[in-house]
């Protein structure tokens, strides 16, 4: 758990962060969201002490990080940034091995770990291991950046607009993979972005910031249903609901039972998100979809199901 207490950082007259209190639960992905200049990156860089706060403190698992050696602290946290920052003179393998090497792992353990990491982020170690960063595409470089950050298996992962510099298609793939990765690894992730869709897709909780202050800290569903103030609702706009439904897939919701004449309905796989299912309804001008699970019909999805699932989700968030 990361507890941020009364964090303030001023640059000259400007308050980049202004008395921020925020608790980031273990094993969750928390997105710091807000317009540019809101202080998101400063908060992130305070967590690994690349920036020293003017006042306030940050506690990791109850320990004030100001009392820790910053270098040792940073080695216990993965760090991924928008410009990747791969070491241009090291191969992909050497880049990923950087932190384990500093931690003094033995050679064989490093080699095995590096290959494991590369495979985890979807890069073939045979093909990419000995390449230099200049030979990688933006998306590949960012995968290597994630692999490097995770190599030493740090419990905390800090990510600063990690997918901001890649093209939209690659970004979407990386986001989806990030989601699967996090579902598997359950790290405590602090993720900075200004992209609402990215935040809604990835976040367990969103901390919405403005001018160095926290406006609201809650699940995306709660932000949609119960915005704390005008700024929050204006920031997310009218269609946050439409965005939120990307977080849930058909397998999560209670479908209507199969009718007798289901054969004529368009079919859709249970793995797709509610947003995609809704798009399918609209696109096919259908009233209902036949949801297939493992190749067998599992139920029927229609607009009622969607509405029902959303109110249920709301209830869960409230509890």
């Amino acid at each position: 758990m990361i507890e941020i207490v009364g964090l303030t950082k001023t640059y000259g007259d400007r308050r980049a962060v202004d008395g921020l209190d925020l608790t980031i639960p273990t094993g969750e992905l928390t997105v710091l969201l807000g317009p540019s200049g809101a202080g998101k990156t400063t908060v992130l860089r305070c967590i690994n002490r690349l920036v020293e706060p003017t006042s306030g403190s940050i506690l990791v698992d109850g320990v004030d990080i100001a009392t820790l050696d910053p270098v040792a602290l940073r080695r216990s946290m993965g760090y991924v940034i928008q410009n990747v920052g791969l070491f241009p003179d090291m191969t992909v393998r050497e880049n990923v091995a950087a932190v384990p090497r500093m931690l003094g792992w033995d050679r064989r353990r490093i080699a095995a770990r590096v290959d494991e990491m590369l495979e985890m982020v979807g890069l073939d170690p045979e093909r990419y291991g000995d390449a230099y960063p200049r030979q990688l595409s933006g998306g590949e470089a960012q995968r290597v950046g994630v692999a490097r950050a995770l190599a030493a298996d740090p419990p905390i992962l800090l990510m600063d607009e990690p997918f901001g510099a890649v093209d939209p298609l690659t970004r979407e793939r990386l986001q989806r993979e990030m989601r699967h990765l996090q579902a598997k690894l359950r790290k405590t992730v602090v993720f900075v972005t200004h992209d609402i869709d990215e935040a809604v897709l990835l976040a367990d909780r969103i901390a919405l910031m403005r001018d160095g202050r926290l406006e609201q800290h809650d699940t995306p569903e709660a932000l949609w249903r119960r915005p704390a103030n005008d700024f929050v609702s204006r920031f997310f706009g009218e269609n946050l609901g439409l965005r939120v439904i990307i977080r849930h897939c058909l397998a999560d919701v209670t479908l209507k039972p199969l009718p007798h004449d289901a054969g004529g309905l368009p079919r859709v796989d249970a793995g797709v998100s509610l947003k995609e299912a809704l798009a399918e309804l609209v696109g096919r001008r259908a009233r209902a979809l036949l949801v297939m699970r493992d190749g067998r019909p599992a139920g029927v999805f229609d607009f009622d199901v969607l509405v029902e699932s959303l109110s249920r989700e709301d209830g869960r968030a409230r509890a």
């Binding site: 270098v71 760090y79 940034i81 410009n83 990747v84 920052g85 070491f87 003179d89 950087a98 500093m102």
Partner: peptide, 27 residues
């Protein structure tokens, strides 16, 4: 040297000396 490289080196826990020896000097 790309500032992002230096930032990343610091961020993954290299001290000033090590950063110089492992990242800046070789580059």
């Amino acid at each position: 040297i790309d500032p992002a490289t230096v930032d990343a080196a610091t961020g993954i826990g290299m001290g000033a000396l090590r950063r110089f020896a492992m990242v800046e000097a070789p580059l």
